[in-house]
Structure formats: C-alpha cells, structure tokens
Design a protein around this nucleic acid. Structure first.
Lengths: 212, 212
DNA sequence: CGTGCGATGTATCGGTCCGATACATCGCGG
DNA sequence: CCGCGATGTATCGGACCGATACATCGCACG
C-alpha cells in the first residue's frame, strides 16, 4: 500500500521523506491518520534498492541563491525512475483482494486520476461488492443474533450498517458517473479543452473545486 | 487491542480459539474484517504466559457421552483468571491515545456493557474530539488546498468529511443519552421491567446468550 | 544578544497484526 | 468409499505503527 502511494506521489514531483509524508497525509487524510516514519523510511529504502526510485540532487533553483558556502542540509530527495512508473502501472492493473479493503480502496481511489476508466470501474464494483457483503453480515447479526448481544454492541452494528448503506449509495453514484463518462460527482462544466488521449498525467485544469 | 477483546469475551464464557474468532467477528463486524489466526494464537499464548488466561479442561457435559475411548480432539479451551479480570478492568480504566482511533474506539465501545458510566462518557468525548480534529483537517484541505488536488481525491475527502460529521452527530446523541442515564439510542420501549441503576457488571440477564 | 522552542528533517527498534500456508479431524451427501 | 466443506490448531515472513533519538533552522521574547 505504502509502496503504491509513494510511487504515485513521486510521479507528480520529486520529494524528500518529510514532504512525502505531508502530501500523503493531505491526500489520504480521509482514510488514514498519518503515515509513520517507521514505515516510510524503510519503504523508501526498499524502493530504492528495487530500482523504482533514486536519490535526486538537491536543487534549490528557486532564485539566484547564496547556496555555495552554507553547509549542505541533510535532505534526501527522491524521484521516480522509468522502472518505477512501470511498477506503478502494474500495481494499478492487478487488483488483489486487498484492493477492496478500506485502506487499499482508499489509496487506489486517491490515484484514480492516473487510472484508466475500465480499471476504475472494476475497482469501484469490487469495492461495492465487498461492502455489500459486509452489510449483509451486519444485517444477519442484527436480525438473527440480536438477542445475544448487549445494547451497545447492537448500536455499534447499527451505526456500521448505516455507514455501509451510505457507502454503497456513494459507490453507485460514482459508478453511474463513470459509465456516463463524466468526472466524479461534480457537474464539472468547463473541461472541454484539449484532447489528451492518455490520462496518466491528469489534465491539470480538470481539478476545479466547488465548496470553499 | 486483541488482548482487550479476548479478555472481554472470555468473561462471558470459556472458549477455544476458533470459537473466539467467530464471536469476535460477530461482535466487531462493524469495525474490522476478521481477526487473523496469525495474531489470535500468538496472543492467546502471550495471555496465558502472563497468567491472564488458563487452559480449561474440555468438558463435553452435554449428554451422558461416550468420551472415554474416542481419541481426544485437539481443542484447547481457555478461560479467564482472576488476574485476567483485573487486567481487563485496568485496560478499561487507562485510556491512551489509541483508545480513540477507529479500531481502538470500536473495541472499547463493544465492551461498554462492562464499562462504568464515567469511563464511557470519557471515551465518547475523547472520540468526539478526535473526530472533530479529523473533520477540521479535511475542511482545511477542501478549503485551502483544493486546487492542488484532482477531482477524485477531492471526492474522497468530501466523503470522508461527511462520515466525520455523521459520526460526530452520532456521538453527540450517545453522550446525551449517557448523561441522561438511559441506555443507548433505542427508545427502548419495552425494557421498562426492572430498573437497575448500575451497569458495570451487566445485569447478567441482559446479555442473553449461549448456544454451545 | 542569546536562548529556547517549534518546525523541519532523517533514522532505528520492538511490537502488533495480517495473509498465506500447512495439516488433521469430523460429518455428510453422492 | 470418497471427497469436500466446516471445524480446529499452528507458524512464518512481512507490513506498518509508536516511541525514541538526534541534528538543524528561523524567529520570537526577554
């Protein structure tokens, strides 16, 4: 999962660990708390050893600069390699069961802008199936086994069931949008600009937001 | 977390691993998929080593039985010890930060029937605080950083934000109920039978259960 | 002027938990 | 009689977390 997310983020621009963590937190804030350095740094090392990423020279570049004499800071900037991009594409394509669990789905979804439509659809439907199963499980418990459980446990299940139903509805909507060829939810009026048959680098204008 | 859940469950009745997993799955179905044996068995061993649980003799007991000559089945039934109960009480009392993350809160909530009201209130409020923080984080991202993110990522955040707001409302309701001394949500029309102001050891009739 | 503190930044260690895998028994239907 | 799904115990490698350590930078406050 972390591997996937790092590869995805580094395709947008080179970054060092700390920065990577912040971006990760911003992008995945809806689904996980914050990546621990205890997993981040070892993973970076692993990816580098595998050749998916490399250390890039620290380029200040922002202005004329006074860099020469000041002591070099210990920052390590990573960039993705060609092999890394292939790896990422491969990770997107092959959807294992972990693609549909809470975290796995969230991470994949966060990189939907770099995912082709067919795969997006496949993942959304897989997720829906999984949530429907969880929902049925909860209904079973609430129906058949209700008298064996205390009021608090039951309330927890009810809340969970509610969340399931809500997510299924959300997924239905996304799937419908996907099939009709539109972008996510948002009406998204203006995008008609240039063509770009590939979608990997998402047309940067597409991101329009709405509710400030 | 697993330690807590096992100790809690074994207080209802002795069980072997497989059974424990099923009960765990039923009780925590709303918050986690299913406990892996890869964590369950090692944890059982650890708890036994610590003296919180012990192996109990396999008592068929159900009927007159023909047990004598048939080969003993490899079932290992565990029961909680007095020290284990103390340990459980102690784990309930001390609420660390992990008490308020998704899994931690869910597990604690599932055993609210064995938790005194003051602690319940404390945990609910801690959880609310945590979710409110997450909510603010998401609002920030959706507000200030929106143009940096693609439409899918934004949609994910919106969905997350919605879930946060919903959970906060749910918690508010539970807190209000708790303060007014009532049981969870349910109007709970019929229960008017006995009163029972205390709840710590849940009035043993309340949990109804058992099917060996 | 210094000094302390919060943000930035890299890194490791022990521990929890998961997923895959292995293996054995039981009861039942074909 | 055989296979197959449920029951049941168990281990191993790997992913990820939380605590911790340590060093530098900029700036606010005395």
């Amino acid at each position: 999962m972390l591997e996937f997310a790092i590869l995805g983020l580094l395709q947008e621009s080179p970054m060092h660990g700390y920065e990577l963590r912040k971006e990760l937190t911003a992008k995945l804030g809806a689904i996980r708390a914050a990546i621990s350095y205890g997993s981040l740094y070892p993973t970076l090392r692993r990816l580098q050893a595998a050749g998916w990423i490399t250390e890039a020279a620290e380029t200040p570049a922002t202005a004329e600069e006074v860099p020469a004499l000041t002591s070099r800071r210990g920052r390590v900037v990573y960039k993705i390699t060609a092999e890394g991009k292939e790896r990422f594409a491969q990770l997107i394509a092959q959807a294992g069961p972990e693609t549909y669990d809470d975290t796995g789905f969230g991470v994949h979804f966060a990189f939907f802008a770099r995912t082709d439509q067919a795969t997006r659809l496949r993942i959304l439907e897989g997720r829906r199936r999984k949530i429907e199963e969880r929902r049925e499980g909860l209904r079973d418990v609430l129906g058949r086994a209700a008298e064996r459980l205390d009021a608090y446990t039951l309330e927890l299940q009810r809340h969970g069931l509610d969340a399931c139903e809500r997510e299924v509805r959300w997924l239905e909507e996304l799937i419908a949008n996907e099939r009709s060829g539109r972008a996510p939810t948002v009406p998204n009026t203006g995008t008609a600009g240039g063509r770009r048959e590939d979608n990997s680098p998402p047309p940067p204008g597409e991101t329009r937001k709405e509710r400030p």
